[in-house]
């Protein structure tokens, strides 16, 4: 039996597919997979670095398309975007199972790997939906609708399409402060962008330096709407928090304190 190795890779999905490639090609016994940034130097077991090569990644993709159903492939990608520590190893096992079957559907929920991937994909999907719901655009002086977010998982690639179809006639930016990249829609296409922020864009959500003069007024109107739609005799804060956990409040115009 081969001794087991620790793998490091660049953290991208293509990179992960190259790890899959290497594991098959070199018959590796893998005990852990880490994205480079996360890796703690351990003198006793220097990790094996797998480089990302598009051609290899594509070969794996083709292979996966052949043996996996669309849903089970989606679960693979979505669970990957969770960036949860250790998820790569679970996903590798998932892919290995898929390659063993010819028509893998990933519905054997009695299996712990399949169940885990399904559950993590579900968590990511929940975050995707939350972002689609909770993102609040603010109209900037440049006529661009801007929203800054810090999602738990890397869902930007998943929400792009939704916003592109919906807001086809306005320019917009959705920026992930945590992962330091964003999406910019210029009325034609969505492109990835990197921005340098002065600290104040984050803190002054309605700083007149950046935003259109009417912006604050609409935010206030929305807050008024939100508070008058509440029915006091039905108050149920517990349920409220279940739907809108506190960590999402920072996005929500209706939860900020403009009115006070």
């Amino acid at each position: 039996m081969n001794t087991s190795v620790i793998i490091s890779y660049d953290g991208s999905f293509d990179g992960f597919l190259c790890v899959v490639f290497a594991s098959f090609e070199q018959h590796l016994q893998i005990s852990a997979i880490h994205p480079e940034i996360e890796l703690q130097q351990d003198f006793f077991s220097a990790p094996l670095l797998i480089l990302t090569e598009e051609a290899k990644a594509n070969r794996v993709k083709t292979g996966l398309t052949k043996c996996m159903s669309a849903t089970s492939r989606r679960k693979l990608y979505w669970a990957f975007l969770s960036e949860l520590p250790g998820i790569e190893l679970t996903l590798l096992q998932y892919v290995q199972m898929a390659f063993k079957e010819s028509k893998f559907r990933g519905t054997d929920f009695g299996d712990s790997v399949i169940l885990r991937v399904t559950q993590v994909a579900k968590m990511v999907s929940r975050e995707k939906h939350r972002m689609e719901a909770f993102i609040r655009f603010k109209l900037t002086k440049d006529d661009i609708y801007f929203a800054g977010i810090e999602p738990d998982f890397n869902v930007l690639p998943l929400i792009s399409k939704h916003f592109e179809t919906r807001y086809a006639d306005q320019k917009w930016i959705i920026y992930d402060y945590k992962r330091k990249f964003g999406l910019y829609y210029d009325l034609e296409n969505v492109v990835q962008i990197h921005l340098e922020f002065s600290e104040d864009i984050k803190d002054h959500a309605h700083n007149p330096k950046f935003y259109d003069t009417s912006e604050l007024e609409f935010q206030k109107l929305w807050q008024h709407y939100f508070s008058s739609t509440n029915i006091k005799s039905r108050k149920n804060l517990k349920l409220h928090l279940q739907h809108v956990p506190k960590r999402y409040w920072k996005y929500l115009t209706e939860k900020s304190s403009l009115l006070n």
């Binding site: 689609e132 719901a133 939100f226 509440n230 029915i231 349920l239 409220h240 809108v244």
Partner: peptide
């Protein structure tokens, strides 16, 4: 449909 927010009594907005 997307619930963009929830009232304090837990109803979808």
């Amino acid at each position: 449909g997307i619930c963009h927010s929830y009232t304090e009594d837990g109803r979808c907005v």
